[in-house]
Nucleic acid binder design. Structure first.
Lengths: 345, 345
DNA sequence: TTTTAGCACTCAGTTCGATAGAGTGCTAAC
DNA sequence: GTTAGCACTCTATCGAACTGAGTGCTAAAA
């Protein structure tokens, strides 16, 4: 691929990204001044088509990049784009705003992402390392009800209201909490042994009912660790010209409603470091040919705990999206440290 | 409005709800056997149009119900529709399934609702009564970090991780928790007095940092009580024939992205008891003319704590939607009692 | 007086052909 | 190797003609 072919390919990709219309030889010659006539460019375009980098929707239309063309663009031709002051400032300030909980932070991240790119944003939180039991507390709410609170070592807090017999008094609950805390500290799904449970029931047999329910919550907490995904800017993306017709929109929304699919998209192992771009059918085994995903992981104290991604048409502004995703994940990691670890409040 | 006119109106509404096509006089004469000829029905239709119950999209089209026509149908003509065994069973079993938390229950309610109606479902949770502080616990997570957990008397649990100096030991945290619990029990936003806080700082001055952060979380918990809305089945609704063209879909999604608007729709005071139907522009001050909302409140121990609603085109199957919403809210109230009050687990 | 058959009329939607315009590929000249 | 020129292809658009659903009106029938 010689220098001029690269220039032509670059022009085609850039123009198509900007206009969403097939690009003709005349347009390139006029707009991108390669110093040659349309005829020459036509020759180059014929070559590029033969090589598989561009294609023609129909005979009398201009060319559009193929998946391979986009790939070449992203890998070799694209110039990195810096965010503007304002954009960086927006991200920083949004992430620095005090958040009530982690969920809010993720929500905000998604909004930022789609606002800056005008595509759909996805934020996946993963719980890869099995967590351990940290702490339990039984809080009497009123004579007949008790709140069970379980804290896991990864910072998750689960709670559930249970019904308790009126005969139970606060000090009983206190004792129960104490014993459970002492016995179960640091255990996970695999290390909770049957003999240990037997011991517990022996010791706390009087309150079997509460013990049952408490252990149930603990077990659920150890077990039920779902990934969660936050979506943002779906409506935003519909302003893109590819969504003129109803069918396209429906297909898109159909994809977005399959949460498991999206989770899979983002939990690919290749995504572990840095920004990853997958274009069209490069996305493994699913027919979202006309879309691309730009994703990157975010960290908490050096460990990957989730992935941020942008889903948009293959004709997306890769340069911009990549820089936004990159900058955002880095700042998200910092923000999470602040919220979850309590630094710098 | 004589008997035959009512029958004609009923036929028009029913047919239009079923087919989404304007209804002509011939169709009515054939399908609904009123025992008269199309010409007679045409005369009746002309009258009904003059009275404002139906309208004509254009000269050579059939008639469609006007907002007023739908209203008359809902108020006087519609026969109540019972749910099938299967539908009731589905609702009961879905709501009886063990849920990890309340959010899951609402999510499921929404899914049920849209699944059974094929429109969009909305579940609003309201926090009208200001809650009171119930309990606080400081849990040491590791040498440098502590988890603050706050329980409110309405069953809400808030938590936040804070950074603590290494010098603090577990028993300090225990003391702090105890004192805070003793002093603040049962207080709400209005009754927390300055003198009380001063007292606290005097007593616990050594740990000012932790005290600050703990009180901050308590304050946030008392203050930040947002309504939350769960949406479901957006994609589902797009199968309706009104969403053939892209513009309609976009408008719809535009509405659905305005959470505050939806919250307002559902927090109307008139909704306090039973199922309410608002058709087209009956919905106050917002231009969602082409849509209707069917809503009903749900309760927890006799107190209204939220609203369930269905949003769909004015041409919605009111009979079905109303019965689903009715049955569902009743069962939701029961399910919530079970989850939140711990009954019958 | 009410109902109905008949008929002229209206209007949206569809089909078809003509036309315009964008863009190409090829050829021959530069 | 580059370019001007030209024939060719194909889509999109526009309008005319046509179709069919449905109406309103009138006059006859019940």
């Amino acid at each position: 691929m010689d220098d001029r072919k690269q220039k032509v390919l670059l022009a085609i990709v850039q123009d198509f990204i900007a206009t969403a219309e097939p690009v003709g030889s005349r347009t390139i010659a006029k707009k991108y001044k390669l110093g040659v006539s349309p005829a020459t460019i036509r020759n180059e375009m014929a070559d590029l088509e033969e090589m598989g980098y561009i294609e023609q929707p129909h005979t009398s239309a201009g060319r559009i990049p193929s998946v391979r063309g986009y790939r070449y663009y992203v890998d070799y031709l694209m110039k990195k784009r810096e965010l503007t002051r304002e954009e960086e400032e927006l991200i920083r300030s949004q992430l620095a705003t005090k958040a009530r909980d982690v969920g809010k932070v993720f929500q905000r991240t998604g909004n930022l992402l789609s606002q800056l790119t005008s595509y759909t944003s996805m934020v996946l939180t993963q719980q890869r390392r099995p967590s351990k039991f940290k702490y339990i507390q039984l809080v009497p709410m009123n004579p007949a009800r008790t709140m069970v609170i379980v804290v896991m070592d990864n910072g998750a807090v689960h709670h559930r209201m249970i019904e308790t017999p009126e005969s139970i008094i606060a000090s009983d609950l206190e004792t129960l909490s104490k014993v459970l805390n002492a016995k179960l500290q640091g255990l996970n799904m695999d290390t909770i042994k049957f003999t240990l449970l037997k011991e517990l029931y022996y010791e706390l047999g009087r309150h079997k009912h509460i013990l049952d329910l408490s252990l149930e919550l603990i077990q659920d907490s150890l077990f039920l660790e779902e990934d969660k995904i936050y979506l943002g800017g779906v409506f935003n993306m519909l302003t893109q010209p590819e969504f003129q017709n109803a069918e396209k929109i429906k297909t898109m929304l159909g994809i977005l409603e399959q949460e498991e699919l999206l989770c899979e998209l983002l939990s690919d192992e290749n995504l572990d470091k840095g920004v990853t771009v997958r274009i069209g059918d490069e996305i493994k085994d699913c027919d979202i040919k006309e879309y691309s995903v730009v994703a990157a992981p975010y960290m908490l104290s050096g460990r990957k705990i989730g992935t941020v991604g942008v889903l948009g048409p293959t004709r997306m502004d890769y340069a911009k999206v990549i820089s936004v995703v990159d900058f955002l994940t880095k700042n998200l990691s910092i923000a999470l440290d602040r919220v979850l670890r309590g630094r710098g409040r």
